[in-house]
Design a binder for these strands. Structure first.
Length: 559
RNA sequence: UGCCUGAUCGUAUAAUGGUUUAAUAUUCCUGACUUUGACUCAGGAGAUGAAGGUUCGAAUCCUUCUCAGGCAACCA
């Protein structure tokens, strides 16, 4: 137990530990998660959430939830609520109330005035096209706006009038005065404020000018005295501006650190594309169990703990990555294996008649709920003369010695019940097996087996008379390609997996599931993990397949 | 073709000039166990982009090259 494992730090933790060692910010660690309330959180956000919250947690620090709501055109309070819900569900709690960049609009405005007074910002009357033109290209220096040299007084006056609503949308912007020939495009007199006569979801019509990301995010970090502002690699080029503004404004020096965002095979995270899937009717909604959204994964039955573990295992670094879908599934199984009750359900049934079992007799068989529990609990399942087994578990002829499911002449154990011997079967005109005939060994009852008969295979089953019906939705990956959105020549929809949903209208489940409540997760023995859909009712039970069990037999048979 | 990143088993992360036959997880392959072909356990396969250089010693430092990604929204 005293084994000391060497703990490795990721590059962010290294920076933090250096800062702590040097006493920076009094060794305080304070991070933030800054979503824009314009959509639903997805697997990529999950990673950002885990990094921000867990890193702070590790060093006894705090994490703010701050909505980056500086664009009234796209944002809505509806998303604020769903984002909060998702973060809480993931198992994290932010410091104090949720914060909003919009709460700082006045501070930000004052900062802008400060910059103007320092001669570091100017009001530009150029059109969007002209400004784009002025920016130049990565290989060609930009040119100065004709309005660049306005006097401080004129800029102050114009900016005040911008705020007062005297100008139309798009007619003027506030720009930082930096360097139009800068090798970093973001330093070529970036836009700070634009005019938008629009109602903001929180500030209403109080403002008609709104700060751009670069003039809101870093400043908000400073206002909140965020010590380590963790974001994804795409903001690398913004860092120079982030630091420039902090320096010019003389405000709290938050530090931006970029990490590579997590990509997961067979998943996409582009909001635009996700939206398109819904618009085209390829998925039902934002929380369709196939969606890579947090709400979708929750409905699919992925436990929060599994998602957190997945992000941890994926690691943190600065290089591009595509995490295997298998790792996600492994994490989901690891968690569900520990927590779910084992139940029996037959998805594709074939009837078995046990010829020597007394007509009308019903026995209550005791089965363990979850063998992983320290003190396993039990329940009972009715057993009778006619049962259903999985069609896949029967073959008209056993293919080889390695096959140990049901076939004429073979013995198999019915889980928790008896060993049966297969005598024969009936087929219909189409050659489909309609009924299997077996005999059972009365002294082979589970728990008190004195028969001495050995059966290599064990099958799940349900009693025909007692089984309940349910709809079962079999989900598979949404795309057939690992990186559907990374093909220059092909649209991502070309890789849509048309078999990503297979609805089984009538599956037969053991009666104990009658009262299964939405959200509850189970392991359907030998089939996989399933969870009760949020729309499920007692009258119409609906189960979603979260994922299958590992199946080395199926794998072996494929080749 | 200006600037910035990055490159280690199939995938992801680690090794911070020397405990190094480059580790761990996942994946894959064997086998054991099993009233879930699950779980668990045991074993195995598999990598330092290339070329030079510094050094007693390089995945690690230097040079050049190669490859991949990012940057020019009144989005964030």
């Amino acid at each position: 137990m005293s084994e000391v494992k060497k703990e490795y730090l990721n590059f962010i933790e290294e920076i933090i530990e250096e800062d702590i060692a040097s006493g920076k910010h009094n060794a305080r660690v304070h991070t933030r998660f800054p979503p824009e309330p314009n959509g639903y959180l997805h697997i990529g956000h999950t990673k950002a959430i885990c990094i921000n919250f867990e890193t702070a947690q590790k060093y006894g620090g705090k994490t703010n939830l701050r909505f980056d709501d500086t664009n009234p055109t796209t944002e809505d309070t509806e998303f604020v609520e769903s984002i909060k819900k998702d973060i809480k569900w993931l198992g994290f709690d932010w410091e104090g109330e949720a914060l909003f960049a919009s709460d700082y609009f006045q501070n930000l405005y004052d900062f802008a005035v400060m910059l103007i007074k320092k001669g570091l910002a100017y009001v530009d009357d150029s059109t969007p096209e002209q400004i784009a033109e002025q920016k130049g290209t990565p290989t060609k220096a930009g040119t100065h706006s004709p309005f660049r040299s306005r006097s401080i007084e004129e800029n102050l006056d114009l900016f005040t009038r911008m705020k007062n609503g005297e100008f139309k949308d798009g007619s003027r912007v506030l720009r930082a005065k930096i360097d139009m020939a800068h090798p970093n495009m973001h330093m070529r007199d970036p836009l700070l404020y634009r005019i938008k006569h629009e109602t903001h979801h929180r500030t209403g019509d109080e403002w008609c000018i709104y700060p751009m990301y670069d003039f809101a995010h870093g400043q908000s970090d400073s206002i909140e005295e965020i010590t380590h502002s963790l974001c994804s690699l795409e903001f690398r080029h913004h860092r120079e501006l982030y630091n420039w503004l902090i320096e010019q404004l003389g405000i709290f020096p938050s530090r931006q650190i970029e990490f590579a965002r997590m990509n997961v095979a067979y998943m996409i995270t582009s909001k635009r594309r996700l939206k398109k899937l819904i618009a085209e009717g390829l998925v039902s909604s934002w929380n369709d169990p196939r969606m890579p959204t947090i709400s979708g994964m929750r409905r699919r039955g992925y436990p929060a703990a599994a998602l957190r573990n997945f992000c941890d295992k994926a690691g943190v670094a600065k290089r591009e990555n595509v995490i295997q879908y298998e790792l996600l599934e492994a994490c989901v199984r690891e968690e569900l294996n520990k927590t779910t009750d084992r139940v029996m359900g037959v998805l594709n049934p074939v009837k078995v008649v046990i010829k020597n079992y007394p007509e009308g007799q019903v026995e209550q068989m005791e089965v363990v709920n979850n063998p992983e529990e320290e003190i396993p609990t039990k329940r009972t399942m009715p057993f009778s003369k006619e049962i259903y087994i999985e069609r896949d578990d029967f073959k008209e002829e056993a293919p080889n010695r390695k096959y140990f499911r049901m076939a004429p002449g073979r013995n198999v154990r019915l889980k928790g019940a008896y060993i049966v011997h297969c005598e024969g079967f009936e087929k219909d005109a189409n050659g489909e097996v309609t009924e299997i005939h077996c005999t059972y060994y009365p002294d082979s009852r589970s728990g008190s087996d004195t028969s001495g008969i050995k059966a290599k295979g064990t099958l799940h089953w349900v009693s025909v008379e007692h089984a309940i019906e349910a709809e079962v939705r079999i989900y598979d990956r949404l795309f057939t390609d690992e990186t559907p959105d990374k093909h220059e020549d092909k649209d991502f929809l070309e890789f849509y997996n048309h078999d990503s949903l297979d609805t089984i209208e009538k599956a037969y489940l053991e009666p104990s599931l009658q009262n299964a409540s939405p959200g509850t997760q189970y392991q359907f023995m030998r089939l996989g993990y399933f969870c009760v859909d949020e729309t499920s009712t007692k009258e119409q039970l609906i189960f979603n397949r979260t994922t299958t069990l590992r199946d080395s037999w199926a794998k072996k048979n494929k080749s």
